[in-house]
Design a protein around this nucleic acid. Structure first.
Length: 896
RNA sequence: GGGCGAAUAGCUCAGCCGGUUCAGAGCGCCUGCCUUACACGCAGGAAGUCGGGGGUUCGAAUCCCUCUUCGCCCACCA
């Protein structure tokens, strides 16, 4: 031990130095430090790349803590643990952030132009990216920084091109003219997953469309009246008797002068609405299909911003879609064509980045044909190669795969991987070429080419990360060695965005699934169970917590609070009590360490091994055998919990061992041995050192800094030793010692019973009492351990196997029926205690009487609010119980 | 509309392939202690008809049904 340790754990003083030490020592590399190589099989975790939009929030704190726990655990178990960190360029999200920054300067991206804009984004992401990496370090993440990836780096961009062109060549990527989800604010297409459906209270209008020949009308129902301006037909079910005679006839579309046909189509549900559907092929996916089947024209009546376009009648042009909706309904009403309007709950799509209502829009986009990719990904789940924790999440995965739809991958953005397709400008040729490298000339006619303006969905690049981060498409050593990986730890929100697509991409490009287990952790929420978010202002910055209580306190709290499949609830208004468990425990560990270390100066005899002065088994006392057995049970518990991804259980088991067993009992038991008051000091030192060492290793994955700091100070450590690469403790079957557990357990029970008696009868804290016990414990343990019992319970004289006597005193009964008697004499004054209790009883009795009177008063019970009356009744009940308790206690003062 | 999950101490949650950690932990609360590792501590304590109702069983917080309330996922019924 170098310098004395402060009584209060100060994480700031050690964390950054230790992190630097680990990094320089090379413990994060899969093979470990060169002088401490690991030879075990690989264990690979790919970090879900945080978006470079902004700094990390508590959700990232949770996500990365869990990964780090698992990686550190497997690393200590000797595996070539590799945690690959990275960041995501986050196309649409990042572009939005930078556009908002520009807006503050009164600029739009169009003012800058594409190149200047992307330069601007680059400088932004370089800043946030650097901050993110520092944050991950502050959390203690043991990632291999030499392999850090960024989804928009040159290497990963090359992987994106390879993936795109490869799929294109297989016919799995195609360009098509379809209805897609369009965000009128972000001005881009979105995938189905990016259009978040939300149930909303809306309205459905029933509108009359007059028949062209004036012989009547047909009533259609719509939730989006503004799209009427783009109607090119009306559809009914072919078997619908009501409309049979109308099929093939025409209606005159109100507000326009168009004649549009009534067609019959199976897709129409006769039960819904009026059974007649207005068909707007340019603005609804179902209508698009119907229109195509019947050769109806598509009229796009909206601009990209969701204003009415030049294709709409002049008086509507330029109107916002909702304004247009009102105007259309107004006009129908004026014309007497509004049949009615009803409330209607329905799901409306919202942009997942800006929450704007999605507009289905007809446009040319790029798509991935998903069914062939989904099939083997579904297979992998069904045959058990891919499993989920918690298990039920697998059903969601399977359902999604079963109902997979083609993936729209083109985005009308500037920030992202440009689609690697070139169009020949030569009219006679017009060839479209997908290429892994930039091309200047059309490969067919040699004419000039123009690259597609669009970029790819950001998830197209992130789905490749499990192998692109290892060098793919090159066949690298890393790729051979570290693909496939093992555990994917992520939030359930991105199960479909990312996890499912990684599985498909892994199978498609590497022939195997990228990981075997998907661990989906919960969401960090506030006490009202709202997701922590910047916009709600209910977030807690993980770095604030690290600054206040240290990374270990943060990590412990997050791990302890996240049972499998549950959310983590934290109170942003009370950070201190939210993180108190972690902070308090770190401090406890620190002080237990301080105490043990201060007693380990000088040589410590080894507990095991081929040493001459090894401690013999028969030198161990009961407490020693007990703590060794408890330690061993804890090793088994923590190991099994981590293997089963029950991180909270692992943390709780280690916590119990350190606090309840080691600190509260063992350390208290050995104090006089350490001072030499009692024999067995060297054994106590050895056992304390050994069990504390094990406890530190068990806790290291969760609390890496403090455990390292303490572990390095244990005797026999070389300067460069690190707990990060110390072997994980193994349960030792020889340590099982049920006799010791039972016997020491009895000692604990007796000590606790005496302490309770002391407390209950007001014995002065320093006063030593006499105790008589009717038995002597399992195999006479009370006699064997009388020193321990007397000291921990402050007993002056312990008499065993004592029959009932004739003294005044207090008694208690142990679980097995053993009686414990504390004579009043010299401990407490029966008279005074009786008096005190009697007084208290009287006081309570009077209060109860008064309360009864109050409650029997009609004036009160009838006039006061019900909850007030209930509260008063509650009080009465409480007091009555207290009174009983006092009486019991007073009567406990007996002649034993 | 379909699927899934949750309701346990004031708060946040464990326990839930039925009966020896079965009613638990942490925070909060009450009482007493600065006992030479720790007041971010020590010792003791109060506190829950395990959401309501029904059923299966010798026995249910734990299994089944139902109701209520929350939450999540999915959905082209205009």
């Amino acid at each position: 031990m170098s310098e004395p340790l402060a009584p209060q754990y100060n994480p700031q003083a050690i964390e950054s130095d230790l992190y630097r030490f680990w990094n320089q020592r090379g413990v994060f590399a899969p093979d470990g430090p060169s002088d401490h190589p690991r030879a075990g099989p690989p264990y690979v975790v790919v970090m879900p790349p945080p978006n470079v939009t902004a700094v990390l929030h508590m959700g990232h704190g949770l996500n990365n803590t869990i990964q780090d726990v698992l990686v550190r655990f497997e690393r200590m178990r000797g595996r070539a643990a590799l945690w690959i960190p990275g960041t995501d360029h986050a196309g649409i999200a990042t572009q939005n952030v930078v556009e908002r920054l520009l807006a503050k300067e009164g600029l739009t991206r169009f003012d800058l132009g594409r190149e200047a804009f992307t330069d601007r984004v680059w400088s932004h992401v370089r800043e946030t990216g650097a901050v993110i990496l520092r944050q991950l370090e502050a959390l203690g993440c043991s990632a291999d920084w030499s392999r850090a990836y960024f989804t928009f780096n040159d290497d990963l961009s090359r992987a994106v091109r390879e993936a795109f062109v490869s799929l294109y060549e297989k016919g799995l990527i195609y360009r098509g003219h379809y209805i897609i989800n369009w965000c009128p604010r972000c001005l881009t297409a979105l995938s189905n997953e990016e259009a978040e459906k939300e149930e909303e209270e809306g309205r459905i209008w029933r509108l009359r469309y007059p028949l062209a020949d004036g012989s009547g009308h047909i009533i259609v129902a719509t939730t989006r009246p503004e799209t009427i301006l783009g109607d090119t037909g009306v559809a009914v079910h072919p078997d619908d008797e009501r409309y049979r005679g109308l099929i093939g006839r025409e209606v005159r579309l109100p507000l326009t002068d168009r004649l549009i046909p009534i067609v019959a189509d199976d897709a129409v549900d006769p039960e819904f609405g009026t059974g007649a559907v207005k068909v707007t092929p340019a603005h609804d996916p179902l209508d698009f299909e119907i229109g195509r089947r019947h050769g109806l024209a598509s009229i796009d009546v909206m601009t990209p911003e969701a204003r009415m376009s030049l294709a709409a009648p002049e008086r509507f042009q330029g109107l916002d879609r909702y304004e247009a909706r009102r105007r259309v309904v107004d006009e129908f009403e004026r014309l007497g064509l509004l049949e009615g309007v009803d409330h209607h709950r329905h799901a409306v799509g919202h942009c997942y980045r800006c929450d704007t209502v999605i507009e289905p829009r007809l446009s040319d986009q790029w798509f991935v044909k998903m069914a062939p990719l989904a099939q083997p990904a579904l297979e992998a789940y069904r045959d058990g190669r891919l499993r989920f924790v918690p298990e039920r999440r697998g059903d969601e995965y399977a359902r999604w795969m079963e109902n997979i739809r083609d993936w729209c991958i083109s985005r009308q953005l500037w920030w992202g991987h440009r689609i690697p397709v070139w169009y020949c400008q030569n009219e006679g040729c017009a060839r479209m070429t997908a290429s892994r490298t930039d091309i200047e000339r059309c490969p067919d006619c040699g004419g000039p080419v123009r690259q597609d303006e669009d970029v790819l969905d950001t998830w197209f690049s992130s789905q490749l990360v499990p192998f692109s981060s290892l060098g793919w498409p090159d066949r690298t050593r890393d790729l051979d060695r570290f693909y496939p990986g093992h555990t994917m730890v992520t939030a359930p929100e991105i199960l479909f965005f990312w996890v499912a697509r990684m599985v498909m991409a892994g199978i498609e490009f590497r022939g195997s699934i990228p990981f075997s287990t998907v661990y989906l952790h919960g969401t960090v929420r506030d006490t009202q169970h709202r997701k922590m978010s910047k916009s709600l202002g209910n977030g807690i910055d993980p770095l604030d917590v690290v600054g206040l209580y240290g990374a270990d306190a943060l990590r412990y709290t997050l791990v302890a609070g996240s049972a499998v499949g549950t959310d983590v609830i934290l109170d942003p208004d009370d950070i201190e009590s939210s993180f108190a468990p972690g902070r308090n425990f770190a401090n406890k560990l620190w002080n237990a360490g301080r105490f043990i270390l201060s007693n380990l100066e000088g040589p410590v005899r080894p507990l095991a091994g081929p040493h001459a002065n090894v401690i013999r088994r028969d030198e161990l006392g009961l407490a020693d055998r007990w703590i060794i057995a408890r330690c061993d049970a804890t090793v088994a518990e923590v190991t099994e919990a981590l293997e089963r991804f029950r991180l909270n259980e692992a943390a709780a088991a280690a916590y119990r061992f350190v606090w309840s067993d080691l600190a509260d009992w063992y350390i208290e038991q050995i104090k006089p041995r350490l001072t030499g008051e009692q024999p067995g000091g060297d054994v106590a030192r050895a056992v304390a050192a050994q069990t504390f060492d094990v406890a530190l290793r068990l806790l290291h994955p969760v609390m890496p800094f403090i455990t390292e700091a303490l572990w390095q100070r244990l005797p026999g450590r070389a300067k460069d030793d690190s707990i990060s690469v110390a072997p994980w403790p193994r349960p030792d079957p020889r340590a099982a010692d049920t006799a010791a557990l039972e016997r020491f357990g009895a000692v604990q029970e007796l000590v606790t019973a005496v302490r309770a008696l002391r407390g209950e009868y007001g014995v002065q804290p320093g006063q030593r009492v006499h105790i008589r016990v009717t038995g002597s414990g399992p195999a006479g343990v009370f006699d064997d351990e009388r020193d321990t019992i007397q000291r921990l319970a402050k007993v002056a004289e312990l008499r065993l196997d004592q029959p009932a006597g004739t003294q005044l005193g207090a008694h208690a009964v142990l679980e097995d029926g053993t009686g414990v008697f504390m004579p009043a004499e010299g401990a407490f004054d029966v008279g005074r205690e009786t008096e005190r209790l009697q007084k208290e009883e009287d006081r309570l009795y009077r209060a109860i009487e008064a309360q009864k009177k109050k409650l029997s008063n009609q004036q009160f019970t009838s006039r006061a609010p019900a909850e007030v009356v209930e509260r008063e009744r509650e009080k009465l009940r409480d007091w009555s119980e207290q009174l009983e308790e006092l009486t019991r206690k007073r009567k406990g003062l007996v002649m034993a």
